[in-house]
Amino acid sequence: MSEHRTTTEKPRLARQAMCDRLAMEFQDGWIVNLGVGMPTLCSNYVDPRKSLIFHSENGAIGYGPLASAETADRYLVNAGGQQVTAVPGMAIVHHADSFGLIRKGMVDVTVMGAYEVAENGDFANWRVPGRKGGGIGGAMDLAACAKRVFVALEHTTREGEPRLLKRCTLPITAPGVVKLVVTDLGLFELTPQGFKLREHAPGWTLDEIQALTGARLSAADDLREFRLRASREPR
């Protein structure tokens, strides 16, 4: 979504490009759990060289792409309640077993949205200021137990405030777990020294991205332009 950008700014990355980039990191055979909202776009990036197993909290292990009107089955939904397709080899378990799989550490990567990410690997995605209560869902279980936590979020708030910070201001979902962050300005790795910019959005410099970031950025030795889905890559 780019509607809220200030008009004087250079173009930023689209949500699908952000999620494509995270999906490029997935490895053959990984069990992948995609959070509700933007992260589900990761499943639109299909690499025929890799076989992924999509897991959802409601107990579907190995489900397929979103269903069309013809293939929809109202008994089969993903974590966002979207109707998905069955693929050969899929298995169904109940909710406690589904989270047993998560807590055992079998999920290779979980991709989540967030309001804030901090340079110490904390992130916050369940409560916003001024609202009582929150929406945790399975985020705390996944964040604490998945092998890798990737986060996709807009680089700044609607008001232009940074979302990549020294420390989270909102209540966190899990401490010190985030490994990789994609924003509409680039790809960032979490290191003991904080955020390391690996890839920048086309036309954006490290200094320009730093100016919109609430923590110190370092540059990867091989800092490069953001990898986009090549036109020859399958849709």
């Binding site: 909290e57 406690a96 945790i136 279980d141």
Partner: peptide, 14 residues
């Protein structure tokens, strides 16, 4: 209300 992480909710029921 008591807010409970979903996996903890499921395991407490189990």
């Amino acid at each position: 209300a008591e807010l409970i992480p979903q996996g903890t909710l499921a395991e407490r029921i189990r």
